[in-house]
């Protein structure tokens, strides 16, 4: 993971400053300029995936730890409220991580035969950041949900 590279290169002073910032549960990344770039990359990735569809809120439940013990393996569960019938089902759920080098995480494709638009996996998060799920329904409507996950920077994990 990239974290490994970055920690290998930073000086002890940087480590202290960085971990201090993370530990204070600052929430929004380390530097405002990087956070902004992250958001632009996220918006671009979402637009590339769903086009200009009108995005609504609701229907998605994201199951994520509030604090991830280790950014290498963060469990994520997603569930979208849908009858999952031939005429009314969830086509896809796209998962994004705003603060990762590449915001795309996974796209899950369901069918009426799925029975439930419910799935779980494990993902990598570089740092404390927003995780976004975007659901595309069979009728073309689009829903979005965002959850912040705080990522611990290890003491003995460095």
């Amino acid at each position: 993971m990239t974290r490994k590279i970055s920690t290998a290169r930073v000086t002890r002073r940087h480590v202290l400053v960085l971990t201090g910032a993370a530990a204070a549960v600052a929430g929004t990344g380390f530097l405002p300029s990087i956070a902004a770039a992250d958001k632009a990359a996220l918006d671009a990735a979402i637009k590339k995936t769903i086009g200009d569809a009108n995005v609504q809120s609701g229907r998605i439940t994201l199951d994520l730890p509030q604090i991830a013990e280790n950014g290498n393996t963060v469990p994520i569960g997603v569930e979208v409220d849908s009858p999952m019938t031939a005429n009314d089902y969830v086509k896809s759920v796209h998962i994004f991580a705003e603060g990762n080098p590449n915001p795309q995480v996974a796209s899950l494709h369901f069918t009426p035969a799925s029975g439930a638009a419910k799935a779980s996996t494990r993902m990598r998060l570089l740092k404390t950041q927003n995780v976004v799920a975007v659901a595309e329904m069979s009728d073309g409507s689009v829903y979005r949900e965002t959850v912040e996950v705080k990522v611990t920077i290890g003491g003995c994990g460095g």
């Binding site: 963060v74 795309q104 494709h109 069918t111 494990r122 993902m123 990598r124």
Partner: peptide, 11 residues
Amino acid sequence: VFSADWHPAIS
């Protein structure tokens, strides 16, 4: 019945 595209952020 189900498929998924994975990116490098999958563990």
